[in-house]
Design a binder for these strands. Structure first.
Lengths: 356, 356
DNA sequence: GTGAAAGCGCTAACAA
DNA sequence: TTGTTAGCGCTTTCAC
């Protein structure tokens, strides 16, 4: 019979007394035998909120301790249909510039009793295989801070795996999202630039298909136009330092008056831009050129940069993402929710009155 | 009987034709039924190297595709006693300065058919709970790039969970290690400093209990002494930018001749030190002061710093770590191995002739 | 090459 | 409150 406990186990045929054979981990049966109770009693002892007497609990726990028994989460997951695993999808390339969120999310998941199964996704094909992997490992949910196509999302939806998007979403599709909307702060900052006399600005954008980049660019463009600052140019970057430098170099080659301010769609590019302006072109930042970034990464505040930027509340966003995935795991039919956080302007010293 | 397939499954009692009930994932039984073969045949189809006929494989795969069947890795793990999960332990705080290794390791694990279960460890108690968690999840191995006490390591050893240490090890205990030994490069760099006329240097150390910090400090100290450069002072930092700045500030308060060179035990502190020297004390780096770092992080090469440093071959080290853990998972009784990589000097522009 | 059957370690429904 | 028992979905002998 299947339920005949450990019939083939050598520890039983050889010697019923020795409970833990070297090299084999103790199971609930081993604990039950040592404690002289049933296996299910052991199981109950490790499930919070089970009805169990103090005496029983004590006996079991003593035996468990002796055998260093810890319930097998894999076996538990098989029967409960809950793995307590959450796939965390990050972009290896982009996250290098911004690892805070990953660590915060991992910590938060841990406090929620969930484990982070980490996947790096740097291409659409990666996403494909990662989703299959996550499916094989029966993850209870997915936190996606990397690229994911609509089709891929639909697969997860069909399989009823809850997904929380971190800083990206599908506008035309219901989904659960934690997001930072810097519109208000962009508006403030752009007005400040206007008052400082800036009338021509340039934008260095992030990756073409990156949602954060596209949204920030849109907001900046709108805000500049509304305020009455002309957009001299808008060049493509890829979020890296090098692309910020290259972007600024590219700006120099364009016709027309030079912009007095450059808005970079993330901090890394802003630093590249600043260094290019200062060290290659010999400009003075901010006297000759004002530079603004996005993200609020730690490095931006180093004395060499003192970047004026718009910070995302990463801690609160990570917390929210984990809270939301945990909720959706418990109640998958729950309606979708989008939690939008505001940014915050970090003043810095990279903007000043426009040169006359 | 336990092996009576899916007796209680509503999809069977209600309708034997419909193979996949909405909301339940397909199992190998569902596929077997649709293909008209036995369940074990399905299992064999998904195990590489099983003896199976082409016709059978085709039929099964067709059915599997139709049902979007993927084997359940959790159930597989239960029976094979292999979870294909590897716990990756990183320090959340310290890794912020150095996320490359984590992403590289994750990618490499993925190619080896293993998944990274990520844990952040920032205190000894964290390590305690993390080890228990990893044990519960039946991880096949552990890659530890965070603090772990000897006792904690011994627990893992006793439980026969292979461990690979990344950039740390226990000298008096056999263990499997991937490590970067920069002794040679330190020697070169120190000699270079000597030839540039430096005779007094200071050291800004990393966290007291951090193995990398202790080792680098030891090597630097020895090298300076051997070469004939006096160690003016050695102050404590914690690997952060701020502590590098504070460290340099602290150096200024000390009696005696000021050092003409500062060796910082990581790049982050070197940048803090450099900024403090330049922007707070108005020194010119490298004309007035030479600064050296360790790690070779990307930022160090930004034009604002151009840090002279000793790089670790992170890519190769990550690769080695994954290779080693995969080997040990397959052959746990294999003897231990320590793979030591050399560093590489990145010239940079933060050292020059000592001021006279 | 294929199928029947046992059982990995656990939870949960049920009976006592 | 406790014990008995049926499976979660898979791999793996063992017959044929």
């Amino acid at each position: 019979m299947a339920s005949n406990p450990r019939k083939k186990n050598p520890s039983e045929t050889d010697d019923n007394i020795i409970p833990l054979i070297k090299g084999r981990r103790a199971t609930s049966y081993d604990v039950a035998r040592l404690a002289g109770v049933s296996q299910s009693a052991v199981s109950r002892c490790f499930k919070p909120g089970s009805s169990i007497s103090g005496k029983m609990r004590e006996r079991v726990m003593k035996a468990a301790k002796k055998l260093e028994y810890q319930p097998n989460a894999i076996a538990r997951g098989l029967i409960t249909q809950r793995s307590n695993l959450v796939a965390v999808l990050v972009s290896g390339r982009l996250n290098l510039y911004y690892p805070e969120a990953l660590f915060k999310i991992t910590e938060q998941l841990s406090s929620a009793g969930l484990r982070a199964l980490l996947f790096t996704v740097d291409s659409e094909e990666d996403a494909e295989t990662v989703i299959e992997q996550a499916w094989q490992f029966q993850v209870d949910g997915v936190i996606s801070a990397s690229h994911m196509s609509r089709e891929q999302y639909k697969i997860l939806e069909k399989r009823q795996i809850p997904v929380v998007f971190f800083n990206r979403y599908f506008a035309d599709h219901p989904n659960t999202v934690v997001y930072c909307d810097p519109a208000e702060q962009v508006s403030d900052l752009v007005e400040q630039l206007y008052e400082l006399g800036h009338r021509r600005a340039a934008i260095i954008k992030g990756p073409e298909k990156n949602m954060v980049s596209v949204e920030r660019t849109r907001i900046v463009t709108e805000s500049l136009t509304r305020t009455g600052i002309e957009i001299a140019a808008s060049v493509q970057g890829d979020f890296s330092y090098e692309s910020g430098a290259a972007g600024f170099q590219h700006l120099q080659t364009l016709d027309g008056d030079a912009p007095t301010a450059v808005i970079c769609i993330n901090d890394m590019m802003a630093m590249g831009c600043m260094d290019e302006a200062r060290f290659v072109l010999g400009l003075n930042v901010p006297a000759d050129l004002s530079i603004v970034g996005f993200d609020g990464i730690g490095m931006g505040q180093f004395s060499s940069y003192e970047l004026t930027t718009i910070r995302q509340p990463i801690g609160r966003m990570s917390e929210a993402a984990v809270k939301m995935i945990a909720d959706r795991v418990d109640r998958p039919d729950q309606s979708h929710e989008k939690r939008v956080f505001e940014g915050a302007v970090i003043p810095g010293g990279s903007i000043a009155r426009a040169p006359t």
